[in-house]
């Protein structure tokens, strides 16, 4: 990809928007298929997490989605107000566990095994595991007051 692609949305927490943004990502990117698929998946999973576990505490604090890609890096960022401290702690613990792991595939399979044993598990947050294992993106988070930002970054190999 020879140019920088960048766009930003402030969205109301409505589910159909996830599909719209996935379509937008697909329309704009010029990577090979598997990388395009990874970008769509990561965008979707981050937004779905925000809509499921996030909230809108005050006017003007809609969910924010930002996508930036150039030949060196893809960066996808989603911000939203958190619904509860418990949700934040669960998400933080999962991302910390993922980032500490040297075998994300095994971690993903272990998560599936837990879900298989407990199919009533409500908040699996499997999407976070999928982003790192399948999408090969690195996750980070930042909490400022009640505003949570999750960033997914994938460094691209140089063509040269």
């Amino acid at each position: 990809m020879d140019k920088t692609v960048s766009f930003e949305y402030y969205i109301r927490p409505l589910w159909y928007v996830v599909g719209e943004i996935r379509d937008k990502v697909e329309a704009l990117l010029e990577f090979e298929n598997s990388l395009n698929d990874a970008c769509k998946m990561v965008s979707s999973e981050l937004l779905e997490n925000a809509l499921k576990y996030g909230t809108c505490l005050k006017r003007g604090s809609d969910t924010r989605f930002e996508f930036t890609a150039d030949e060196k890096q893809i960066r996808i960022e989603v911000s939203n107000d958190i619904y509860s401290e418990d949700d934040y702690k669960s998400l933080k613990d999962n991302i910390d566990q993922i980032n500490a792991s040297d075998n994300v595939r095994n971690l993903y399979i272990e998560r599936l095994r837990l879900m298989m044993e407990n199919t009533k598990m409500v908040k699996s947050q499997l999407g976070l595991y999928r982003i790192t294992y399948e999408g090969k993106f690195k996750l980070s988070y930042q909490l400022e007051d009640t505003r949570l930002t999750i960033t997914a970054i994938r460094e691209l190999e140089s063509k040269n």
Binding site: L112, T119, L126, R130
Partner: peptide, 16 residues
Amino acid sequence: KYMNSSTVMPIMQFMK
């Protein structure tokens, strides 16, 4: 063509 991570749960339940 595409499935989100939430679809994994019903697939696993089906397998079980």
